[in-house]
Structure formats: C-alpha cells, structure tokens
Design a protein around this nucleic acid. Sequence first.
DNA 1: GGGACGG
Length: 498
Amino acid sequence: MADSSNTSSSTAATTTGNPPEIRSWADEADEIDQAEKSSAANENDSAEPQIGSLQIDESKRVINSTLDDPEDSRIEAVTSGDTMYKSAKRFEDLNLSPELLKGLYVEMKFERPSKIQEISLPMILTPPYKNLIAQAHNGSGKTTCFVLGMLSRVDPKLAAPQALCICPTRELAIQNMEVLLKMGKFTGITSELAIPADAANYIPVSKRPPVSAQVVIGTPGTINKWVTARKLGMSCMKILVFDEADHMLAETGFQDDSIRIMKAIVKASADSQVLLFSATFGENVKAFVTKIVRDLFVKDYNQMFVKKEELSLDSVKQYKVQCPDELSKVMVIKDKILELGQKVGQTIIFVRTKNGASMLHKSLVDYGYEVTTIQGALKQEDRDKIIKEFKEGLTQVLISTDLLARGFDQSQVNLVVNYDLPVRHESPSEPDHEVYLHRIGRAGRFGRKGAIFNLLCNDRDDMLMSKIENHFNSQVTEIASWRSDEDFENALKKAGLL
DNA sequence: GGGACGG
C-alpha cells in the first residue's frame, strides 16, 4: 500500500546478468507465467519476437528473485542499457528536496516508499531519465508514484511547464491534481488543470494567457487545443505521464490526441522522458504501445510490472447472481445490496450506457432510495458536485458508466455491482477483461476488503461471466437465490465486510 | 458502448 510499506524484507532489484528473456508485462502475466515453461511463451516469442522484449544485446534483466514473503507482490523490473538502479528503501535515498520530503511525511503521511515506488522511482529519477512502462495494480499507489516523479523532476526556479500528465477523464485529472497539490504543498511548485471549462467560465483559447504553471494535468483534447494554440509551451518539458496509458494509446478517440501530444513533446524537447502507467496492458495494446515508444523516442525504455498471485482479485470477493429478468436485477440492488450495503460502506453500480444509468437511477429513486448518478453527458458542475458528495460520504450509492471504471479512488467503496457486465464494443459477445479488472479495482482499495456482485439475467450474461472466470482463472461464487437475504448476508460475511 | 475533442 502507498501510505506505509510493510516491514518484510524488501526486494532490491538485482542484476542477474542473464541474457534477457522475452517476457510479457501484461496483466495476464500470471497466467502466461504458469504456462510459459510449456508452450505459451514460445508461441508468443515466435509470433512476435520483439514484443515485451528488449533490445537483445544491450539489455539486462533485473528481477527481484529473493523474496521471502509469499504475501508480497512480485515486482519485476526490466531495464535496458547499462544504467544501474538501486532500489530506494527510504525517500532519503532519492535526492528529493527537503520541501518534497516534508510533503511526503507530513501531508501524505508516508513512512517509506511502497514496493512499486521503491523499484520505479530510481528508474524515473536516475539520469539519463529513461522512459518507463509501468504496470502497477489497482490501489498499489501508482498515482503517488508518478506524481512524485513529476514533482522531483521539476526545477522550482524555472517558471515554465516542465511536467505534463494526461488522463482519460476529467475526474481522474482532478483527482491526480489533488494528490499533486497535497504532496507538493511545501515545494511552491505551480500547477494547472487542463480540462474544458464549464460554460460560465469559458474563455476562448486565444484570449487566455500562456501557461506558466510548472506541472499541467489534464485531458487530451484540452491539452492539444492549448498546444496547438501555442498557449502550452513544450520547450521546457522534462516529463510526460500517461495515466491509464493502455487506454490512452489504444482507444480510438484518445489515440490520435495522445500521439499528437507525444510528437509535440519530442519535437520541442528531445530528451524528454515519458512514463506510461496502467493496471492493465492487454496483449494487443502492449505490442502497440511498445512500438509507439520505440518509434517516437530516441531513448529506449525500462519496464516494471507487478505480479500478484491473483491480481487484484484476491482482496475482494466476487459473486454472481442469477436474476430471472431485468426487474429482478433492480430488486436485488434495492432489497439486498442497498439494504445490506448501508452497513458496509459505499457502493458503485456500473452500467453499460448513459441511458441505462438514467433508467436504473429512476427506478431506484421511485422506490425511495437516495442514489446519485454520474455520466459524461452531465454538466461539469454536476459531475463535480456528485463526485464531491460521494467523496465526502454524503451519498452512499453511486451509479456510473465506465467513466469511473478507471482510477477513481475512494477508500470507502467496499461494494461494486456490475449491473451490466463489461463487453467489448467491437464484439459484444466478448467480455472486456481489462474493464472488468478496473471496475472491481474500485473496491478494496489498498488491500481493504471488498465484494463484487455481478448480476446476470440471460444466457449471454452467463457466457460472458464464464469467459471472465476462465480468463482470470478465478471462480466467481454463485449466490444460490436472488431472493434470499441470508445468502447475501453470508456473502458479505465471507468477504469480511460484516 | 463509454470516455476524450464543442463554444
């Protein structure tokens, strides 16, 4: 967890000197790993030899193989080139400014680097500042990791944009900015949020002054707009961070903007460093992302990935509920999940569409329940208000589209409901495993307890569910009867929530 | 389908 590392003996990155193996840093690494001695890895290798591997002759594999605590995540770092990295056991090992250290200890209340920080921060902060592709699990502290990276690399005396962070949603940009302000409180480092202004505060880009803030966090459209209008200068940029990088670089609609920003940075500031962070890097995405980094940046890149026996699937308990029809799904939410949920914390209910969100909202409100709903069609001020109320604990239940699937951090969320299972848009008979993982990652933050309820009401749902179970190789427990209060109570007890 | 570019 991010705020206080455990005390088990840590895992220094140690150079083995072995020739590099071709490895995957996808989140499915565990599966691949289990089978890799046999055929899986070989298949991968022969099909696409460059993927997930490094430039063969100049790379070294650095792996922490000396774990003595089976509870620990396994963190693997693959470095390229000759630079040696020493893991940071203490923040003092990182040459941070006293002001930043104070922020870490006093504001963030950190004691020492978390596992992923211990390994990745030296890779981020050691010259020649190589690019980094980092997979870190939900709730493992990846935000604090790249925020610290940005704050450390900014020169406080230079009043120009030096760090840029790009996020897939406005909410995530805002949330990351809040972490930055907190951690950087004593540094005097300036920052600006680059998201679209609401109608009331709208100023045409041509009429706004150039950005002088040292750190800019925002969404791709607005950032591009500012860059194109020459209001956001790239010449002093040292570090570019993509949060939810797989999504930003692979998804149509994000991809063009993201690549354009990358190109602008490379053009203006050749030695800039790019950090790609996500909990998931699917097979296809991984290939694509590595290719982009290779093509665009002169410098090569390091990789880090966190392996855990069952991903983030182990601290939260997953359930599935057979519901005979749509209405019974509403009944389950109303009579079981909301009633019991009151006792165990906050709940997020995920739906597939904005319309679905509105319909469910109306149903529950008509039954007299207090729920709020967030989706992208709302006005920004409403979005802000709903998030604020939820984060302050004023509302207990939040219905959301996949707007909140990624990155949303609210520690009181113990229950996640999939009213609709996540499906791939291009082939709706296939589940979206990455989105599933991100959604359930909203519960059980930083190792806390949590429960997931998947509501199924037809053969297609059954099929999707079983594909998800197979993919993650984890059995999802079936609730015997959707009508039984006792069944749901026991489920929450087993999840450690009652 | 969702999110990200609207002005």
